[in-house]
Amino acid sequence: MNISPEEAEKALLEIEASRVAMRGAIRSHRGHLFLWLWGFVWMAMSALYWIDGHRFLWEIVAFAAAGIVGSFVIGIVQDRQIRSRFDRRFAAVCATLLVFGYGVWPVLFGGFASHKAAFGYFSLLWMQLYIVAGIWFDIYLLWVGLAVTALIVAGFLLAPGFFWAFTLLCGAVLVGSGFYVRYFWR
C-alpha cells in the first residue's frame, strides 16, 4: 500500500484537526475551575476578615466549606470524563504537609497572635501544596504557588496595614491564573 503526497497531506490535516479539538477538551479539564472557585472563596474570606473577622467568623467558615464541597463536585464530574491516575506518593506528601501544618506546628508553637497570622500561615501551607503539585505535575501550579506566597509574605512583613488588600490580590491571582490556564495554557 502506497500513500500519495495528497493523501499524506489530508491525513496530516485530519491529525491536526483532531489534535486541536482534543487540546481544547483537555484544557477544559485542567485546574481552572478550582482556581476560579478558590480565587472567589479566598477573596470573599479576605474581604470578610478585612471588614471584621470576629463578627463574620461563621460566614468565613461557610465560604471555606462551600469551597471544599465545590471542589469535590468539580473533581467528581471531571473525573468521569478525563481521569488522572491516582498518585499515592503525591497524596502521601500532601497528607504529610497537611498533618504537620494543621496538627503539629500550631500545637508545638502555640496559637496564632492574630487573624492575619493565622490566615497567612494557612495560606502559605496551602501554597506549599501548590508548589509541590507544580513540581510534580504541571508547572503552572508552581508559579501560582510562588506568586501567592510572595504576596502573602510581602503583605505580612512589609505592609501589615494593607495585609487584607494583599490577600484579596492573592484571590485575584488565582482567578486570573484560572483564565490563563483555561484559554492559553498548553
Binding site: S18, I82, R83
Partner: peptide
C-alpha cells in the same frame, strides 16, 4: 484511527479518557 490516536496522544501519561466522552 488517525483521529483516535491523535486525540489520545494529547493526554498526559497519567491521563485516561472515558469511552463515552
Amino acid at each position: 484511527r488517525l483521529q483516535i490516536m491523535s486525540a489520545l496522544c494529547q493526554l498526559s501519561e497519567r491521563e485516561r479518557v472515558d469511552f463515552t466522552y
